[in-house]
């Protein structure tokens, strides 16, 4: 096996064009290879030392551009992301362990394409786009176009995800991501839900988006939700999420259990997002604040 440690994006894209596969923290690729899921590619290009992939920049329209090489640790501790795109911080704070979060990246999580990825549902409710680059140029795709099946994306083999673009946050809006988990570290979502809520001036829900984790072949968005009181919208999200989910049974949970719990997660995500939209500060990750995965006797 050969490894190129790239320090510029151009070098990395040239290596991809010549057939190499990218590696950042290796938390999916190396672990998968050691499991026998897929052998390590014969040619790898390490992209974790490309500084331009590790920046977080405010865009001209008030949105945010997060480099694909930004780690979960950076996301969970970034003040801007925590305040304005809280659901993404909620998600990154739940990934793996401190070690996983230091080497694991947003781009890796997105491009691994797992239907159980934690950052995926938050990106969908924000209307995020992935920027894919190759030696021939770059393009932006929305998340629903990017993911085409478990572990599969619409990116070509020579395309590298270089950044995630988040639109500006609306006034009186808030977001949250919740995950059902059996333990609080090194865990994969049993199910999860993200919600982004924008309130009207009188405190009702003006618009809402909800996306679901680990209940279909990809991250999916709940359809048919409209505004109303927070309680009514939360109840509608619970019913719609349970109705629209197409979960499987596996060793982690039965399909019936997933269908029930995804409704509960969706309702709680809407409730938490609405509280944040109203100006309340709920600590990252919101999972702990609502009592999921709290240590016995813990008070924070």
């Amino acid at each position: 096996m050969s490894l190129l440690i790239a320090t510029t994006l151009d070098d990395a894209l040239a290596a991809l064009a010549a057939g190499a596969r990218p590696i950042a923290g290796g938390t999916d690729l190396v672990v998968g290879a050691r499991h026998g899921k897929a052998p390590l590619p014969a040619s790898l290009v390490a992209i974790d030392r490309i500084e331009s992939l590790r920046t977080i920049d405010r865009s001209a329209d008030g949105g945010l551009v997060i480099g694909a090489g930004v780690s979960h640790h950076t996301i969970e501790t970034d003040a801007t992301i925590g305040a304005e795109w809280s659901a993404l911080a909620d998600a990154s704070a739940l990934v793996g362990s401190p070690a996983t979060r230091h080497v694991g990246t947003l781009g890796g999580n997105v491009m691994n394409g797992s239907p159980a990825m934690d950052t995926g549902a938050p990106l969908v409710v924000f209307g995020a786009e992935a920027e894919l680059a190759s030696a021939a140029g770059s393009r932006r795709v929305d998340m629903a176009t990017l993911w085409v099946g478990p572990g599969r994306t619409s990116a070509a083999a020579d395309e590298l995800c270089v950044a995630i673009h988040l639109p500006a946050r609306a006034l009186r809006s808030g977001s949250a991501y919740l995950r059902l988990e059996y333990r609080r570290a090194m865990e994969i979502a049993v199910v999860g839900a993200a919600a982004a809520v924008t309130l009207t001036a009188d405190g009702a829900v003006g618009s809402v988006r909800v996306a679901l984790t680990a209940i279909a072949a990809t991250i999916v968005e709940v359809t048919g939700l409209t505004g109303g009181s927070v309680a009514d919208v939360a109840a509608a999200a619970q019913a719609a999420a349970a109705d629209q989910a197409t979960p499987i049974s596996d060793l982690r949970a039965s399909d019936r259990y997933r269908r029930h719990c995804i409704g509960v997660m969706a309702r709680r995500a809407v409730e938490a997002a609405a509280r944040r939209a109203a100006g309340e500060t709920i600590a990252i990750p919101v999972n702990r604040a609502v009592g999921i995965g709290m240590a016995a006797g813990a008070t924070s």
Partner: peptide, 18 residues
């Protein structure tokens, strides 16, 4: 690795060079 925790079982040795 540069002061940050890493699971060395699942990290390529070559990526730790430098």
């Amino acid at each position: 690795l540069d002061g940050q925790p890493v699971n060395s079982c699942s990290y390529l040795a070559a990526q730790a060079a430098g």
